[in-house]
Design a protein around this nucleic acid. Structure first.
Lengths: 158, 158
DNA sequence: GGTCATAGCTTGAAGCTTCAAGTGTCAGCC
DNA sequence: GGCTGACACTTGAAGCTTCAAGCTATGACC
């Protein structure tokens, strides 16, 4: 497993500079979602995936979105969203209803209960985001972070 | 839910600059592990968590580490690691054996089969890492990435 | 108008992670 | 020596995510 064990096609390993960035990045993408999940679960009993559904719907006109668009906006698979919304519907936070003009489409709407929950838990969540991400960064670093995140996002969206 | 609905303690929302960084970052921490997982699962039948165990053990003297240290190095909970190593032991990639001097400790060792698997799948995995992370970044950005990841890591480690 | 591929969403099973609780071991203390 | 508390790890159940397969509806093509 050294750089000299060259097969076809040649295996290009990470150089020292890349490795020095990769290992911390790996920890971040591991620990950051974990931290968000834990804070939300402790104070609200839901994971971050559910929070994103609530928050995304709350920002829409009529607090409504089709399942497909909701999946795209929250970067989750249709299946995962379907399960999640089913669970949230059972708890009364979201309602589903078919589209009258295209019967393949289902609309998901944030209920008043769902909005109430979101309003209760949002401040604590935002505080956690500030604590783990933004409190330790300068304005210039925040700008770099935005630019880097967008650069990494490009190949991820295929 | 506006910035004017100030409760005690005052809710500080994210400003526009922070939001412009936060939304892409959120997608990255969501999609990046997903991409790594999918590539590995497609070509090797294992998830990224397993890969990290194999890779971490392979870099140790005797290819051995105690469960606790392995958990710390891979940033996973003891429970998660316990389940994962149990599954990998069943497939013959890792062996467990108690420490002779301190019987609370279990050592995990990468077997020859485990090392063989790692050597087969590492090139493809590294290629994927390059593709989604490093190919789109300049050297200067890689350096910024390292610095940012370390800054965010500090509050995450509590 | 019938056929076919595709879009949009759901389902169930399998796998993984988390949480709470449990086991056994060690070290400090009286 | 016996208690107490902490450490290292494991276990089982519950919840979440993923994958493959399925459903119905739509649009395009002939």
């Amino acid at each position: 497993m050294t750089a000299e064990d060259v097969a076809t096609p040649a295996t290009r390993w990470l150089d020292a500079q890349q490795m020095a960035a990769w290992l911390p990045l790996l920890r971040v993408v591991q620990l950051l979602p974990q931290a968000l999940d834990r804070q939300l679960r402790r104070e609200a009993g839901i994971g971050h995936a559910y929070y994103q559904v609530l928050a995304t719907l709350s920002a829409q006109p009529e607090r409504t979105l089709s399942m497909g668009e909701l999946a795209r906006m929250t970067a989750t698979s249709p299946s995962r969203l379907s399960h999640a919304v089913a669970a949230m519907e059972e708890r009364g936070w979201v309602a589903r209803r078919p589209c009258p003009t295209n019967r393949r489409i289902q609309y998901a709407t944030l209920t008043d209960e769902g909005l109430g929950l979101l309003e209760r838990i949002a401040p604590g969540h935002v505080a956690e985001v500030r604590r783990v991400v933004f409190d330790g960064l300068t304005d210039e670093q925040v700008e770099q972070l935005r630019s880097l995140a967008l650069a990494i996002l490009a190949p991820l969206d295929d």
